[in-house]
Amino acid sequence: MMAETGTIPFTYNQETYQTWYKVVGDISSDIRPVIALHGGPGFSHHYMLPHAELAKSRGIPVIFYDQIGNGESSHPANKPKEFWSLDLFMDELDNLLAHFRINDNFDLVGHSWGAMLALHYASHRQPQGLKHLVIVSGTPATELWVEGTTRLRKQLPPDVLDVLERHEAAGTTDSKEYQDALMVFYKKHVCTLDPWPKQLLQSFDVMGKDPTVYTTMWGSSEMSADGTLRTWTCVDQLHTIHCPTLLTNGRMDEAHDVNVMPMFNKLPRVKWVQFANSSHLAFFEEPERYIAVVSDFLLNA
């Protein structure tokens, strides 16, 4: 399978950075390419690599990249929090599309934060070349995400919930006790596999080495959402997205159904598939069915 890696110069606010990318498949083929938007914010492309199966089994070229501040891309230092904005990441995506000359014909698959970015990009910039949108375990509003995770955390054992609440109140969410309690939630609602896949661990490791984007945009904890995205919403813009859109989540997903329902109700051309044996990472937990569902949508919707 053809694969290519490289970097793309990206100029923003009169400074030039580098966006690292990996292309799997033949981008010059007659099959429309899909760009994979990783989550976090602050993760890397590594855990999205199961989407390479779209190229291997269905011939769909896939472009992976590390968003600026993450992974192998540039890590701008000492930037004000306003620097890490949705406009930054939308401009970077536009720059990537222009580099590959696919502005007029492309698909997007966004997972978690990547799904938020995809929704914001599709609704605010309304790119004419966007033909299909795949929203994987995402949300159209941060407050809906918090509502969903709050519902799920109430189902945790009382002692685990006590640890979470105590450290969140004290502002000590970086403590080992808090992180261990958070892992109980993760193993139920983020990834149910044991052990976790190496690619997923790799992305967690990348974020741990430079958590700037995550802590600035999302906040101190997965459940706190006290960063710059805390008031983000594009619910009122969903009706402007006219390309066919596939929504997916897992039955045990931290992307609770409360996140998906507004999208299902407001998007004009929409399909919703829920994976019964998955949490937040169906492409690891039910890979064959996930690839079949997504590839069928991209090729036939």
Rank of each mutant, 00 (worst) to 15 (best):
A3P: 00
G6L: 13
G6Y: 06
P9L: 13
W20T: 04
V24K: 04
D26T: 12
S28T: 07
I31S: 08
V34T: 07
I35F: 09
A36F: 02
H46R: 15
Y47H: 08
L49E: 14
L49P: 06
L49D: 12
E53K: 08
E53I: 01
E53T: 02
A55S: 11
K56R: 15
R58I: 02
G59W: 10
V62H: 01
Q67V: 04
Q67L: 09
P76K: 13
N78R: 08
K79W: 01
D87H: 04
F89W: 07
E92A: 05
A98L: 12
F100V: 04
R101Q: 14
I102K: 08
L108G: 15
H111Q: 08
H111I: 12
S112G: 13
M116I: 03
A118D: 13
L119P: 03
Y121P: 15
A122N: 15
Q128P: 04
L133T: 01
S137I: 14
G138W: 04
A141W: 11
T149N: 11
D159C: 05
L161Q: 12
H167E: 13
A169C: 01
A170C: 09
S175K: 07
E177H: 05
D180G: 04
A181H: 12
K187E: 05
K188F: 00
P195E: 02
K198Y: 12
L200R: 14
Q202R: 07
D210I: 11
Y214K: 00
T216N: 01
E222D: 15
S224Y: 09
S224T: 14
A225C: 08
H239Q: 05
I241K: 06
I241M: 05
H242G: 01
P244N: 04
L247Y: 12
L247S: 10
T248F: 15
N249V: 09
G250Q: 13
A255R: 15
D257P: 07
V258W: 05
V258T: 09
M261Y: 09
N265I: 03
W272G: 01
S278I: 11
Y290M: 09
Y290E: 07
V293S: 04
L299P: 05
